[in-house]
Design a protein around this nucleic acid. Structure first.
Lengths: 246, 246
DNA sequence: TGACACCAATGGTCTTGACCATCGGCCGAG
DNA sequence: CTCGGCCGATGGTCAAGACCATTGGTGTCA
């Protein structure tokens, strides 16, 4: 058994003795206490962080996280997702309108149907090729003065955080199969009624306020999800990400 | 951008110039060529290995792997999945045949096309309603004497483990959108060309032998995937679960 | 009393250097 | 010619140390 595995077990035992949210000793402290280098200690912690047992907070400490009962999946933003593949992510804003929320969007955003929202339609491109069509709804009150050019080359989430001081804390995304309609087919350059993924996502602030409601159509011929089953005996957690057709 | 991220991109570019199965330069060579320490180089490679771009072979080298690109997600069996929702899972075996593997199945199972496999088609029911159509391929040599009645009321994986002493250690599943054909539509009680999920899964023993190749069509109108995003700034990790239409 | 600046502690990253474990080819013995 | 052992190259692991970036408290100054 490698030292890293031994350390992992020691730390897991430590975690079990602590409650959710409690901090484990600092890395420097732990590494000396357990008699290993900080590097080895960090390698063990890295694994536990990836599996969701621990959460790191820069400048603060490392904390025991919520037990993530079943499964896990990593979602990255479209921009980051593409960048990691060495592809150039880009987006073209098709429209930006200030409209009434209406019943469906109001329910998703948990606001009044009469409230105003920006409805933004964007085409997401990878290496210049259309990959997804995204319709974003966000309350006007949260991002007053939002304009199309701001969206062009900055990440939407960076824009939210830097300019409007809005931080996303959690979200829920559903994925279902669908087929493209006329408009979607044309924008995505696929035949009518092509299989596609429909992603719907809402995101919340730490205070629980819903910031956005996003509806995305992803080309089924270029995008697929890959699930890796790892049969770990323990609380069976697993990493995850979104992939593209090979 | 951190050095590790820069290195990662450099290596990704390198990978693109190589074919599947080709070796990348050794770690020591790469680290000096790229002007970083071996540890930093390894950290970048580690990530690419985790994501499936590269395969390491101790004493031999590091090789470009099949482009299974990216990500992972944890899955439960249909039976367990339904049980978690408080629904009654059942299955109807439509056919069980002893056939030659053929090229596609042989490749998935990593056996010879002439080898014999059981091809089992099952309709998966939840509370009596058809939810998915599953086509299962498993080498006859692994489960000699398998009969249809055995499949009716026991979990397939329990049967494997208890009766045939075959344990599943890992697996890979891809998910893509599709539409139903005539046969699928009829069996699933949905209109022709209805949106559906196509799941393809292979499962391996701890020894690396592929046990099964499963191709499943899930009704898109009754099944959806739910991904719960829990915050996390950069590495943007996310818990996930599999759900059904609310 | 309040706001601001500072600073210690923490996690994040990276380097240099070392030794172990495994693989596969080379070369010598038979 | 064949077999077997040796050895170089590779990946696997670990140490000790250094510096950066962020956080959060503390102390000072207005």
């Amino acid at each position: 058994m490698t030292k890293q595995e031994q350390i992992r077990q020691r730390v897991v035992q430590l975690i079990r003795q602590l409650g959710v949210g409690e901090a484990i000793p600092s890395e420097r402290r732990l590494s000396t206490d357990l008699g290993v280098s900080r590097l080895t200690l960090r390698a063990a912690l890295d694994e536990l962080v990836r599996e969701g047992y621990l959460v790191r907070r820069h400048g603060s400490g490392t904390f025991v996280s919520e037990p993530k009962i079943a499964q896990q999946l990593t979602l990255t933003s479209f921009t980051e997702d593409m960048r990691r593949r060495g592809m150039v992510a880009d987006s073209r804003t098709i429209s930006l309108e200030n409209v009434h929320a209406g019943p469906q969007v109001a329910r998703a955003l948990n606001i009044s149907p009469a409230d105003r929202v920006f409805q933004i339609r964007r085409l997401r491109l990878a290496d210049g090729e259309p990959m997804a069509l995204e319709t974003l709804h966000v309350p006007v009150s949260l991002v007053p003065g939002l304009t199309a050019p701001q969206l062009e080359h900055a990440s939407w989430y960076e824009l939210l955080e830097d300019r409007y001081n809005v931080v996303i804390a959690s979200g829920l995304q559903t994925i279902e199969p669908t087929v493209t309609n006329e408009e979607e087919s044309e924008l995505l350059h696929v035949p009518l009624h092509s299989p596609a993924f429909l992603f719907e996502r809402t995101s919340q602030t730490p205070g629980g306020r819903t910031v956005e409601y996003v509806r995305s159509i992803y080309r089924g011929d270029r995008y697929r999800l890959v699930a890796e089953l790892s049969q770990r005996r323990e609380p069976s957690v697993t990493p995850l990400a979104i992939g593209e057709r090979g």
